[in-house]
Design a protein around this nucleic acid. Structure first.
Lengths: 148, 148
DNA sequence: CCTTTACCTCAAGTATACTTAAGGTTTTAA
DNA sequence: TTAAAACCTTAAGTATACTTGAGGTAAAGG
């Protein structure tokens, strides 16, 4: 238990807000213990957990799914190297799928949006039951609330 | 104005709900005119507009950004083939960026999550100011509220 | 010692993208 | 003609991922 981290330290080092740590704890994504003053104390591995959460979010994985995936990690002791590796491998597959989905979308985008086809049957992007969706990962989000 | 579509027809053919069409109209993403009974009537090109909105959403583009991009299309007359093509080309660039971002993430994921590095400085996914983010598109979302 | 900073809890607020509900009119089909 | 189906409006509700505010305790520095 040496070098336990305070909530402020974790927030600063992980680049997130204290309130986010509270929130993650409230939904069971991370854990902490308390000192005599009822202040949260974190073990070092919380930093890695938060990083992994952030990386997964960048892949578009929701907190619920992240929680599920991370439930295979030990919640109260530091996960081993291979625990993390399994997680990475699991998500890598999802990433591959997503990349392929986006590639298909890209390859069809110009042809499809710009084409003359007005028929719902022929145009792959014309409705939600399109072929891409069937072969892909489902809706793929790239972010953007960017004003650009 | 022949073959004007009702809101129900558009919803069915585009694979979305009537309420979604109301909503899109309320935020200025699509437009309609009214018949004598105050019912909405749509021109054929609304189908294409909706399809494009859906495709853009699959790329993760938010409605605000979609609206901005589509603001260069004529709102009350059918856009020309080249109008659509410009839009496609514009988003294709974003797609390329996103794909590259995901590829980087994938290539670093296993090495990074599974690695022994615990230093915030060396690990590219360790905090939000990572290198990928700088070269990429920002947070990239792939969906998922999937229960898997 | 005292003030500033950090921490605590719990409730409510924010943004996005819609959906649902309530209460009412119009169209369509039997 | 009459009942079901479709349409209308406005307001409120849903889900996700957090943030902000209110009201109060604890710890650290000068």
């Amino acid at each position: 238990m040496k070098n336990a981290l305070t909530v402020g330290e974790v927030a600063k080092r992980a680049g997130i807000r204290v309130s986010t740590l509270h929130y993650y704890e409230s939904i069971g994504l991370i854990s902490s213990h308390r000192n005599t003053a009822n202040h949260r104390r974190y073990k070092q591995d919380v930093l890695r957990r938060v990083s992994v959460i952030k990386a997964a979010q960048k892949m578009g994985i929701g907190l619920e799914s992240i929680k599920e995936a991370m439930s295979y990690l030990p919640l109260n002791e530091a996960p081993s190297k291979s625990d993390w590796k399994n997680l990475a491998t699991y998500w890598q597959t999802e990433l591959d799928n997503s990349i392929n989905y986006l590639k298909n979308l890209r390859n069809n985008l110009t042809g499809c949006i710009g084409c003359g086809c007005l028929s719902m049957e022929n145009c792959p992007i014309y409705n939600e039951n399109d072929k891409l969706a069937e072969s892909g990962t489902g809706p793929v989000l790239l972010d953007k609330n960017k004003k650009s």
